[in-house]
Simulated scan of single mutants.
Amino acid sequence: MDILVPFEQPIRQVRFVRREKRFLVLVEDGTEKFWVHTNNSGSMLGLLRPGEEMLISKSPNPKRKLPWTLEAVYANDDWCCVNTSMPNKILYAAFEHRALPELAKATKLQREAKVGQSRLDARFESPGGDIWVEAKNVTLVEDNSAAFPDAVTVRGQKHLRELMALAAQGLRVAGFYLVSLAGAHCFAPADYIDPEYASLFYQALDAGVEAWPYTAKVTPQGVGLDRRLPVWRN
């Protein structure tokens, strides 16, 4: 497995103590306890167990109040990336390294691309027309099925509605789901957590929105892209 996106260095291994106010995580390394930042606003369901090993990276920005950022948690006998910026980085790197078959003919990338009233993570130019993509991080696996989201996401619902509106205009649009937790054999929306998102997800598929769920391979050095998962539906 080739690493497409290395973690910010230096990387440090610590253990989880507790979480507060969504974006604060208390960790310890055997000699001290200290707070680190997490950009993951989801629940990280099943991942935050006391004593669980974590990877944190140090920001090069000396003005940051909390210099360390949570990158990954050890779960399911493997590392799981919980940094929500990683799917975008993997998507961009996969295009540059020709690691994503769906983008094999794409020739140019525009990040944070605006179309109408929508702003999506990427627009790829290709001979067959532009491809608009929104990226999501998946850290929940139940009964061998990767599931998104791990908490009710009004923002995610909004994104699906935007993707459907673009598909209705004849544009090619897709959701790229980076499955960071090991053990998944398929992908499905988490209807037991956010039934509205799940309903919109299947409506989006029927409307022509593509779903690209891919497993990630996470190591203490960084993250690579593994294999595409089938989408499960009733």
Rank of each mutant, 00 (worst) to 15 (best):
R49M: 09
P50Y: 00
P50Q: 00
G51F: 01
G51H: 07
E52L: 06
E52W: 09
E53V: 07
L55E: 06
L55R: 01
I56C: 10
S57G: 05
K58N: 02
P60N: 08
P62M: 07
K65G: 06
L66Y: 12
W68Q: 05
W68S: 02
E71R: 12
E71T: 03
A72L: 01
A72Q: 04
V73C: 07
Y74V: 01
A75Q: 04
A75P: 10
N76W: 00
N76H: 03
D77H: 06
D78Y: 04
D78G: 14
D78L: 05
C81F: 00
V82Y: 01
N83C: 00
N83F: 03
T84C: 09
M86I: 13
P87G: 12
P87F: 10
K89P: 06
L91E: 01
L91A: 05
L91F: 13
Y92P: 02
A94G: 14
A94I: 12
F95I: 03
E96C: 02
H97G: 08
R98Y: 02
R98S: 13
A99S: 12
L100I: 14
P101Y: 10
P101C: 06
P101H: 06
E102Q: 15
E102A: 09
L103W: 13
A104E: 14
K105D: 10
A106T: 11
A106L: 06
T107P: 11
L109W: 03
R111F: 03
E112G: 13
A113D: 04
V115F: 15
G116V: 01
Q117A: 14
S118N: 08
S118Y: 12
R119I: 08
L120D: 03
L120W: 00
L120G: 10
L120C: 10
D121A: 07
A122N: 05
A122R: 02
A122E: 09
E125F: 07
S126F: 11
G128D: 11
G128H: 12
G129R: 11
D130Y: 08
I131T: 13
V133K: 12
E134V: 10
E134Q: 12
E134F: 02
A135I: 00
K136R: 13
K136Y: 06
V138Y: 06
V138A: 04
T139E: 05
T139D: 03
V141Q: 07
E142P: 03
D143M: 00
S145I: 15
S145P: 07
A146T: 03
A146D: 00
A147Y: 09
F148I: 02
P149R: 05
P149Y: 07
P149V: 04
A151P: 00
V152S: 15
V152N: 08
V152I: 02
V154E: 11
V154L: 10
G156P: 02
Q157E: 06
K158P: 04
H159G: 09
H159R: 13
L160E: 08
L160Q: 12
L160I: 03
L160Y: 10
R161N: 07
R161Q: 08
E162M: 14
E162Q: 15
E162R: 15
L163F: 09
L163Y: 07
M164K: 14
M164I: 04
M164C: 11
A165Y: 07
A165S: 15
L166W: 04
A167M: 10
A168R: 13
Q169G: 11
G170V: 02
L171Q: 15
R172S: 13
R172E: 09
V173Y: 05
V173I: 04
V173E: 11
V173H: 12
A174I: 02
G175Y: 11
